[in-house]
Amino acid sequence: MAPDPPEHRDGTGPGMPQATGSGRITWAALPDEVTAPIERLLGGKVVRANSQPGGFSEGLAARVRLANGRRAFVKAASSLTAPAVAEHHRREIAISQRLPREVPAPRLLETYDDGVWVALVFEEIPGHLPAQPWQRDELDRVLAAVTDVARVLTPSPVDAAFLGKPRLGGWLALANEGGVKQAEALSPWAADHFDELASLEENASLAGDTLLHGDLYPFNIMLTAERVFVIDWPHAWVGAPHCDVVTLLSSASLSGVDPQPIADSHPLTRDLDPVRINEVLAMHAGFLLRTAGLFGPAADPHIVNMMVALGLASLRWLRERL
């Protein structure tokens, strides 16, 4: 597995690691044969484009302003240079088109796909990412919004078969890959409790009919004065309504927030069998730590560090619960 920064080895630290990937490109770097049709869809010439922080997708992620004053947010990626990201964009198009208007997500305005380049044009949200480390009032706003989103998205408006399985789990795969030694490099506790982690994953019950975001971290949240918006939906899946809030709370521990008292009072977790939370934490950590270990030397160090920090944060909370 890839090493993590020392300040995050126990799942704690001064807030989240660097939350923007290093593979972003500018509007000016897009080929003319891509920018021209996007401008036609927008109905004007782009005169300003500002790349935005947050998230790890390669390609474009920029707020744009047109000569006619219109504003929008544009994401774009090439299937040749970033095939996985391009496919995520296509998946996000399909999901965004199915989200009810009541969901606090940016409205998808236009799409472009020439088979190589794929772009999404969203309404611009005049907001900001949550402060890191978390400010408690902002965290409380987001936690309340997560409850509302789960209510609106139950039952799921998107077919579970279309979405497939969640990005959770990794201990069972690691067991087949000789992963105990790999795990020990990051977390001696995980190596000592490897069988227990694998058992939590193997026996997990995540069944439900709620559409979950599947990637609910601060860099996928936008705050305005009035609303909380959840952005970037390519990893959505259908399951138990508590899963998003558990992963969000585990990530908040990187800001020094104790997640347990919040879980004890939050409407999506307070009445759960404690094992249900333990299962999500184990599977969350397993996915992140195994995936981080699969990256080669050319991988974006920001995403590797983020995955390791988030995975260790889940392990730390799980360790305290057990």
Rank of each mutant, 00 (worst) to 15 (best):
D192H: 10
S251W: 04
A2Y: 01
H213L: 08
I125Q: 09
W134V: 00
G178P: 11
G11M: 04
A313P: 05
S205E: 15
R70F: 10
T111M: 02
L99R: 09
A84I: 04
L163M: 13
M16E: 05
P14W: 03
S253I: 00
V158D: 06
M307A: 07
D271V: 11
V228I: 07
P188Y: 11
S251F: 02
V46A: 11
R90A: 09
V304I: 11
T210C: 15
D195S: 12
F229V: 06
A225Y: 00
V257Q: 05
G54Q: 02
D159E: 15
T12R: 11
D232A: 08
G179Y: 08
L163E: 09
V308Q: 09
W27M: 06
A191L: 11
R227H: 12
L120K: 05
R40I: 11
L42E: 10
L206H: 13
L288T: 03
S78N: 02
Q182P: 13
L139D: 08
G127S: 09
V47Y: 06
T210Y: 07
G179L: 10
A173R: 15
R9D: 09
S205W: 12
T35I: 05
R321T: 14
S255V: 00
V118H: 04
V308F: 01
L200A: 03
W171E: 05
G11E: 02
P166A: 09
Q135C: 07
I25Y: 01
F219V: 00
G69W: 05
P274T: 10
V116W: 00
S255A: 04
F162G: 04
L223G: 03
E33I: 04
L172W: 07
L139A: 13
I303M: 02
L109S: 02
W237I: 14
R316K: 13
M16G: 00
P14R: 08
E202K: 13
V308N: 14
P188I: 09
N220H: 14
I25S: 01
A61M: 06
L153A: 03
G59E: 01
S96P: 02
A225S: 10
P261K: 07
D300K: 04
A29N: 06
S96L: 08
A225L: 01
R9P: 10
P106Q: 03
E124N: 13
A183E: 06
A28L: 06
G293F: 10
D271H: 14
S79M: 03
I262H: 11
V118D: 01
L109Q: 07
I231D: 03
G44E: 11
I38L: 10
V180D: 04
E279S: 14
L41M: 08
K75S: 01
K165D: 13
T147E: 15
P188M: 08
V34S: 01
R91K: 14
I221M: 05
E202C: 04
Q52I: 10
I221P: 08
G170Y: 12
S22N: 11
D192A: 15
W134Y: 14
R70V: 12
E92F: 00
G239T: 09
D258A: 13
V46G: 11
E201K: 12
I303F: 00
S199L: 11
W317S: 05
R101I: 14
P5G: 09
Q18I: 06
E92M: 03
L108P: 01
R107Y: 06
A86K: 03
G164W: 11
V304C: 07
G164F: 12
V116M: 00
L322A: 06
A173W: 12
D264H: 13
P166Q: 13
K45D: 06
